[in-house]
Write a protein that binds this DNA or RNA. Structure first.
Lengths: 145, 145
DNA sequence: TTTGTTGTAATCATTTTTATTACAACTAGA
DNA sequence: TCTAGTTGTAATAAAAATGATTACAACAAA
């Protein structure tokens, strides 16, 4: 199954905060309007990003901001903040393989290192992309039009 | 969310077919017993693998077999056969970002190439692992005990 | 004190996964 | 040819995850 839209939503949120930080108070309603997603969903994601120290959210007065340099926030940081993958494992195993079967008994052990390599390759790529890349590309596209 | 256990199940199925091919008729019930998964699920996965040309299943008399050399079947082949990811895209986007917002209008375009790189890295790793690797490791573990 | 906002609980609809029952179609062997 | 075992598939259900929505207390600034 696909990786939850929470991840792409989170990147969208960051892009909005950065683009509009000087001209608007970027509230959950503001972000909901740009993403076309319910404001409560936005607030949940902001809560996860806040817990990971990736955004600051002003209680009461409202508005989100980014407390760190954009090049210090990677896609992997965001992914980890919002994904909540069980055990941090990308691949799901069937629960109770038959331990009386030599294959059933060993399948997890046989696959673990290989699947970990796959997951690592993906996470390495995620960590190579930062919000600074997004900022540049966004600016370019906005200036263009 | 995690990648469906259909993938790890499929690898388990291949390992069983190979290990037991000389001593048993490897039916969906046999595989269900080793994986501890319902035989209908096994038959569905076998159907997907068959459609991809990765296994042969004997209608009527029963039993599955692998028609190709193990080193010619990669994890990516299996992943593609059973995953059925929508559009083949690993990452899910929120549906209707606001096109009146410069960020909403461009977010998909901005992210596409970057997310494709991530997906590609993962798929490249998947394609580097074959059933021959599984056969070796399985044999080793079984002989050991 | 008013106004706008956040954080969060509760509920619901939808989708996806997995399990399960049932049975027609099929094949090999008796 | 009949029987027994198996596959393919439909139908249904249960469980889990996602996302939407309503509601409201807590909060902070003007």
């Amino acid at each position: 199954m696909q990786i939850s839209s929470r991840f792409t939503l989170a990147v969208h949120i960051f892009a909005c905060i950065d683009v509009f930080k000087d001209d608007y108070k970027v509230t959950s309603d503001f972000l909901a309007a740009s993403t076309n997603v319910n404001p409560v969903i936005i607030r949940k994601i902001l809560g996860q990003l806040k817990a990971a120290g990736l955004v600051e959210v002003a209680r009461g007065s409202g508005g989100a901001s980014i407390p760190r340099p954009l090049n210090e926030i990677s896609f992997l940081d965001i992914y980890n903040a919002v994904e909540c993958i069980e055990n941090g494992e990308l691949f799901h195993f069937h629960e109770n393989p038959n331990t009386d079967c030599p294959v059933g008994k060993n399948i997890h052990g046989i696959l673990d290192d290989k699947l970990m390599r796959v997951q690592k390759a993906m996470e390495d790529q995620l960590s190579s992309i930062t919000l600074e890349d997004i900022r540049k590309d966004t600016k370019e596209l906005i200036d263009l039009k």
